[in-house]
Design a protein around this nucleic acid. Structure first.
Length: 262
DNA sequence: TCTATTTGACCGAG
DNA sequence: CTCGGTCAAATAGA
């Protein structure tokens, strides 16, 4: 890959980000060797993982984090010989989940809730989401466990499966989001109550949900997917990818700033 | 009217 | 048998 190309720049920045995140993790560890510190480390670990994934994606090869990625048969169209039985995969931990902790359930993806359950020994119920584009072949699901909601909401989010809806081809790599976007900006006082709401809005119409969702936590956390599952959007991006890349670079510049000032 | 969410029931693994 | 995960009908909101 040619040096100086946007991808190379991103790669370099991500490498810096990794270093900085590692450093940050150590600092946090020193400052708060408590349970809170553990959360911090989770977050930094997640940052590291994200950086690794981006780097791996840009280098055009396998993923770096050891997370195996299924052979993505792209373009929800045609030859979708998807897992014949996507239905009952009861295997507890059949597909290794990557679990993260976050103070928001917003993660840049569009999820559709399909169930909730009271879990033994858990104070709060567990919520089940699947990718809103499941009908287009995306089999990603996630489990959201509310850990606390008193002073500061905390969620344990377990991700299962891959987002084939956005991972369909090289062109869409730029669209790929780090699986976690911690949105500190939003402050919703009553998470539990917010769950009840129906976050239906199909206003987004022609916009690309991916990019909109990527926008910094524009939706006050209520844990629920924006759910604009309108038929308008196809996960296949092409020319827009470059646009996405330049925006991405802009974002990374900020990151660089942040990392350098740590 | 359409679409997402809710909620109870069902199913299968442990 | 118990428990967690998913389904699908009913319901609610825009």
């Amino acid at each position: 890959m040619a040096l100086g190309s946007p991808a190379a720049v991103v790669q370099e920045l991500m490498a810096m980000g990794q270093q900085s995140a590692a450093h940050l993790g150590e600092l946090l560890r020193a400052v708060s060797p408590t349970a809170l510190g553990e959360q911090h480390q989770e977050l930094t670990a997640e940052i590291l993982r994200c950086c690794g994934r981006v780097i791996a994606a840009l280098s055009g090869g396998s993923t770096a984090t050891g997370k195996k990625r299924k052979a993505v048969e792209l373009g929800g169209a045609a030859s979708s010989s998807l897992p014949a039985t996507p239905s009952k995969r009861r295997g507890r931990g059949a597909e290794a989940a990557r679990e993260i902790k976050s103070d928001t359930t917003e993660d840049g993806y569009i999820w559709r809730k399909y169930g909730q359950k009271d879990i033994n020994g858990c104070k709060h119920r567990r919520l089940y989401y699947r990718c809103a584009f499941r009908d287009q072949g995306c089999g990603a699901t996630r489990r959201v466990q509310l850990l606390s909601q008193e002073d500061m909401p905390a969620f344990a989010i377990a991700y299962y499966g891959d987002h084939t809806c956005r991972d369909g081809g090289a062109a869409s790599q730029e669209q790929a989001m780090p699986p976690t976007v911690v949105d500190h900006g939003s402050s919703n006082a009553a998470p539990a109550a917010a769950w009840g709401g129906t976050g239906t809005d199909r206003n987004m119409g022609s916009a690309t949900p991916a990019l909109l969702a990527v926008g910094v936590g524009q939706r006050s956390f209520d844990g629920d997917a924006p759910s604009e599952t309108s038929q308008g959007w196809s996960p296949a991006f092409s020319s827009e990818a470059e646009l996405g890349m330049s925006e991405l670079l802009d974002g990374f510049r900020d990151w660089e700033y942040v990392f350098n000032s740590v």
